[in-house]
């Protein structure tokens, strides 16, 4: 007797046929040398939500974002963005890298950097015109940085630099924002500005995926969370995810028992 025929693999049906998930990842595996950074990750991001990616240091959070954007090579797996390939969806994504990833001594002003977000729209061979500069200043205003438009970026504080990056992402007018630890080492004003902007873009219909470190604020700032520790531990609404059991599984002994309870209780 023959065994039954196997059927094609359909891990998850699209939630609805009208709008495909902003980000859908299957079997994503990334390894630096022979140490895996992300292992066999399956994930579907819910539409129009603010999503935190949490997990301990070295859990592969930044690596996951970079692999999605094709900035680091992945060993296996595939990524669909709004139901199409990365190449086709490029214009719909804005990426905010970690602040340390660029040379802040570069000869550019805050306005210059925000205008870079418009380069895709301006197109090849066309210079940056006055109206683009005006647009850039508008976006700086949205993050409370209009007074610093002409200043060289190296002479801004860390928080101000982060807000310039934020304004640049806004200028890209994306449907999916990928942010790599925007809250790291910023002042309270910047933190508020980032949260406000995230809520604005959600209202406008965009999705935000954000690597986040501070577990105490996850519940306040985000709707959903993806818990990562090389593998996906779980994902869901922040209420579902921020339980003592799940945090224990993700962080293990790296998070004190009392801390886990405190975080799990605040939500």
């Amino acid at each position: 007797m023959n065994p039954p025929r196997l059927i094609p693999f359909e891990p998850s049906q699209p939630r609805n046929d009208i709008s495909p998930s902003p980000l859908s990842v299957r079997g994503l595996t990334v390894a630096y040398d022979d140490k895996p950074a992300v292992w066999n990750l399956d994930y579907d991001a819910p539409d129009r939500r603010l999503i935190a990616i949490i997990g301990p240091n070295g859990a592969g959070k930044s690596t996951m974002i970079k692999a999605i954007l094709g900035l680091v090579p992945s060993l296996a797996g595939h990524v669909r963005i709004f139901g199409t390939t990365l190449r086709q969806a490029r214009r719909r994504i804005a990426y905010i890298p970690q602040r340390t990833s660029v040379d802040w001594d570069f000869p550019a002003s805050a306005e210059d950097v925000v205008a870079m977000g418009l380069y895709g729209k301006i197109g090849w061979f066309r210079p940056v015109r006055r109206r683009h500069r005006a647009l850039a200043r508008e976006h700086l205003e949205r993050v409370g940085m209009e007074d610093f438009a002409g200043r060289q970026i190296g002479r801004l504080s860390g928080g101000q630099q982060q807000r310039v990056f934020l304004a640049r992402a806004l200028a890209q007018k994306a449907d999916l924002y990928l942010m790599d630890e925007p809250f790291a080492g910023v002042d309270a004003a910047t933190e508020r500005a980032i949260v406000n902007v995230m809520r604005e873009v959600r209202t406008a219909g965009s999705t935000v995926l954000c690597v986040h470190h501070d577990l105490r604020t996850v519940g306040d700032y985000f709707d959903h969370a993806l818990v990562l520790n090389i593998r996906k531990i779980t994902d869901g609404t922040v209420d579902e995810v921020l339980t003592g059991d799940i945090l224990q599984r993700a962080y293990g002994g790296r998070l004190a028992e009392t801390e886990i309870h405190a975080i799990a209780h605040t939500t």
Binding site: L69, G70, L71, R90, R91, I93, A94, Y95, P97, S101, V102, D103, F106, A108, D112, V113, M116, G117, Y119, G120, I122, W124, F125, P127, V128, R168, Q172
Partner: peptide, 22 residues
């Protein structure tokens, strides 16, 4: 002159340049 923008952004932030489709 022709590729000033592209040279500038890919020098400052290659990650952004790639995400702009350059």
């Amino acid at each position: 002159t022709a590729f000033f923008k592209e040279l500038k952004v890919s020098t400052f932030d290659p990650g952004l340049a790639a995400s702009l489709g350059l």
